[in-house]
């Protein structure tokens, strides 16, 4: 396959940046999208140009690093996948492919397609944990009975890999799917209930301070989420926060 790539190039966080056009030749349809990017970067290095910086790590859909906005969608076309799980067979010979970084005030671009997602870390630090005694006499978690349905829902929420596709795809750059998954995951379990109120208040406060937008319930995040995190979690966060702020 021969393709035309239109890629966002930005030297550093201060640079204004612009879209650049790169042709790539002889791309195998069996390549992953990131392998195609590797081919492009080899070409760029060989011709003495600066390779395109992009985040990637596990390349098996569980780390959440490969943040690319491809042809107008987070992680490109296809549902329930990250960029590394997107294959070139999803495109046609002669296609033009737009590749842009996640766009959000809370995710500033570091270079090219690499964005700083530490705002997510700060939201987690604000309350996305349970305080447990780690002095050696920690209670066995399996000793506490948890209803199967709650365990399943908590696990579904816990599959969030914090990739930021929800923020990238939301017209408001809202982080509510991410934050609600983290709040839900813990609020559903007995270990997390103890700090549920404080957690909801603190995580939402941090989310607001980071400059994420608000939720318009468009549902775009749920569609684009590689892990299929449900809007049900946002509803649960809304309940948890309402409970916490009125009691």
């Amino acid at each position: 396959m021969n393709l035309t790539l239109k890629i966002w190039r930005q030297k550093n966080s201060k640079d204004k940046g612009k879209m650049e056009t790169y042709p790539v030749k002889d791309i195998s349809p069996d390549m992953s999208f990131l392998e195609m990017m590797d081919v492009l970067n080899n070409q760029l290095i060989e011709s003495g140009q600066d390779p395109v910086a992009f985040d990637h790590d596990c390349r098996e859909g569980i780390c959440g690093m490969c943040s690319m906005f491809i042809n107008g969608e987070a992680h490109g076309p296809g549902r329930g996948i990250t960029t590394c799980q997107l294959h070139m067979r999803s495109f046609k010979d002669g296609d033009t492919i737009y590749i842009e970084p996640w766009r959000a005030a809370a995710f500033p671009v570091i270079k090219d397609l690499v964005v700083d997602r530490s705002s997510f870390d700060r939201v987690i630090q604000a309350g996305g944990y349970v305080s447990v005694n780690t002095s050696g006499n920690t209670q066995d978690a399996n000793a506490i009975p948890v209803p199967k349905e709650d365990a399943d829902k908590a696990f579904d929420a816990a599959t969030c890999i914090g990739c930021g596709a929800c923020v990238a795809t939301c017209k408001n750059s809202s982080a509510m799917l991410f934050v609600s998954a983290k709040i839900s995951q813990l609020a559903l379990l007995p270990q997390g209930k103890v700090e549920a109120k404080q957690r909801a208040l603190n995580m939402v406060k941090q989310m607001d301070e980071e400059g994420f937008g608000n939720c318009s319930n468009t549902g775009a995040c749920e569609v684009e989420c590689p892990k299929g995190i449900s809007l049900e979690n946002i509803a649960r966060m809304n309940r948890e926060y309402l409970k916490a702020s009125t009691s």
Binding site: N71, G72, E100, R103, A106, N172, S173, G213
Partner: peptide, 11 residues
Amino acid sequence: NKSARPVKYHN
């Protein structure tokens, strides 16, 4: 919400 995305997508 507008201020949460100062730079828009091209596509």
